[in-house]
């Protein structure tokens, strides 16, 4: 029973991705034939930058391959056979019902909350709903640093509430450590993002020391340590030239 709910939840989660691609999506047969594997889920969409988007597009463009026979060629007129994304304003709302159903079916599937919250917040301007959904997800998954990370973004980017953003991100960091200690296989991708966000936040707030310490941790896990080193150097220069009042970081002050 529980198992089938998960299966259905996964199905609907994928359905959201199908909708995101306007129905252009490889079937199990296309996947089996060894055409380029598709993105597994809309999760990537959450982290999708324009550069990534371009890469994904070229990768997907040909999952159908050239037509194999006249029936194949003819039939491509009758179903979506071109790559496409929901990128007209507001169109992304169409994926929401499936994510809602997926979350209801399997409340422990963390991805559902983070993906839905991303779209609600970033593209649909529904910050309240995003926050509510993430809180719901947090209740069901108290140990999920992924959800906490997204929640922090709501506070930071949409509510401009640095204090609460800092709190949840720090909490996320703690949860991350707990889980990595348990699993042994650390999820560096999310860690990087948490650390980056925290460093940016502290830098913005003028807490140089803290920002530096996050950056140093980030350098250790980042695939591009030189870039981080550059950032550290820049920050250090800033610290030297800044007025001494900002140096301690113990005192909460406004933005520099």
């Amino acid at each position: 029973m529980g198992n089938s709910r998960q299966l259905f939840a996964n199905h609907f989660f994928t359905k959201a991705d199908v909708y995101f691609h306007s129905g252009y999506y490889p079937s199990v047969f296309d996947q089996a034939i060894g055409g380029a594997p598709h993105i597994t889920a809309a999760k990537d969409a959450a982290a999708e930058t324009d550069a990534e988007h371009g890469r994904e597009q070229s990768e997907e463009a040909g999952f159908l391959g050239p037509p194999r026979d006249w029936i194949d060629r003819f039939s491509r007129n009758f179903y979506p056979s071109r790559h496409s994304h929901l990128d007209r304003p507001g169109e992304a709302r169409e994926i929401l019902p499936w994510l809602r159903i997926a979350a209801d079916l399997d409340p422990h599937k963390v991805e559902t909350y983070t993906v839905a919250a991303y779209w609600l917040r970033e593209h649909l301007n529904r910050v309240d709903e995003a926050e509510q959904l993430l809180r719901e997800g947090w209740r069901a998954n108290p140990d999920s640093y992924e959800i906490l990370f997204e929640l922090g973004r709501v506070f930071d980017e949409n509510r401009h509430d640095s204090q609460r953003a800092r709190n949840v991100w720090e909490l996320a960091l703690g949860k991350w450590r707990q889980r990595s200690a348990r699993n042994g296989e650390p999820d560096d991708f999310v860690l990087e993002q948490i650390l980056t966000r925290l460093a940016q936040l502290e830098e913005r707030e003028g807490h140089w020391e803290k920002a530096l310490s996050y950056l140093e941790k980030l350098e250790a896990v980042s695939p591009k340590p030189e870039a981080i080193q550059q950032q550290i150097n820049d920050l250090k220069k800033k610290v030297v030239s800044a007025p001494p009042a900002n140096r301690s970081g113990a005192q909460q002050t406004g933005k520099p």
Partner: peptide, 13 residues
């Protein structure tokens, strides 16, 4: 009649 995230313009589903 279902409402998803208070958005009543969702139609494709």
């Amino acid at each position: 009649s279902l409402h998803f995230f208070n958005d009543d313009r969702i139609v494709r589903y």
